[in-house]
């Protein structure tokens, strides 16, 4: 038992500090992906209900592709694809040398692609839940399109989309575990290294399992609060 405590302690003997760093990486990766994914997802949702068929088609192709590919494959495609693509580009302009893409950056891009294509569906169904009269009322008041969107539609939209986006956030946290495959030092990577070095696989992978569970618990508590806050204007029935 003491042995286990030493292994999990912070400092030279234990792996506590390495794993804490992994937790930090996992959380910051998810937090960095969130705004990017939300922004792209919102834009895609707006495009999907445009009157222009070209915009609708382009947006549909985007979601079909990134919802049809495994997340791990998307990650590899982005990581290796960007690396090879940039190398080819540099070779074309006469610059040689190997290029290493930052794994965190590749992770954010790949996760944002996946997150945004799912988020666009959530936003789209939220858009459809807002009656047309809300837009018309805004225009009747003389507000411009952007202003109607910002001041009338989005505040209602967020409230409707919140449960769906909450689910996506939980999925995002779980998907971050995949970046360990391209070598980013997240929870799973750090615990995996510790498991290999110390030969205590069950201890460390069990710890990783629990850490993800704790992250999920914290998220679901936070999301419940957020939803309650979003609903505070609604009548209690």
């Amino acid at each position: 038992m003491d042995n286990y405590l030493t292994l999990l302690s912070f400092g030279d003997q234990g792996w506590g500090d390495e794993i804490a760093w992994g937790v930090l990486i996992t959380v910051s990766l998810a937090l960095a992906t969130l705004p990017v994914g939300l922004f792209i997802g919102f834009m895609i949702a707006v495009a999907k209900q445009s009157e222009e068929w070209t915009l609708r088609t382009a947006a549909d192709i985007y979601t079909t592709i990134f919802r049809g590919l495994p997340e791990l494959l998307t990650l590899f495609l982005v990581y290796f694809g960007l690396q090879i693509g940039i190398q080819q580009l540099l070779k074309a302009v006469g610059l040689g040398g190997a290029i290493e893409i930052n794994t965190f950056f590749a992770g954010v891009i790949a996760l944002a692609l996946v997150f945004s294509s799912y988020a666009s569906e959530v936003f789209l169904s939220a858009f459809r839940a807002i009656p047309k009269g809300q837009y018309e009322g805004g225009y009747a008041l003389g507000l411009r399109r952007g202003r109607v969107m910002r001041s009338i539609i989005v505040p209602q939209l967020i409230r409707i989309a919140l449960p769906g986006l909450g689910n996506l956030w939980m999925i995002l946290i779980k998907d971050t575990a995949l970046v360990s495959a391209i070598g980013l030092t997240d929870i799973l990577r750090q615990t995996g290294v510790a498991a290999r070095v110390t030969k205590e696989a069950f201890l460390f992978f069990g710890l990783a399992f629990l850490l993800y569970l704790v992250l999920a618990l914290i998220s679901s508590i936070g999301l419940n609060r957020l939803e309650a806050y979003g609903k505070r204007g609604e009548q209690v029935r």
Binding site: A177, L188, F202, F209, L213, S220
Partner: peptide, 18 residues
């Protein structure tokens, strides 16, 4: 609540401890 990959690692590598 946990990633499938963490579950898989726990079972594949972790059960080796037992």
């Amino acid at each position: 609540g946990t990633p499938l990959i963490a579950q898989l690692f726990l079972i594949y590598y972790g059960l080796g401890s037992f």
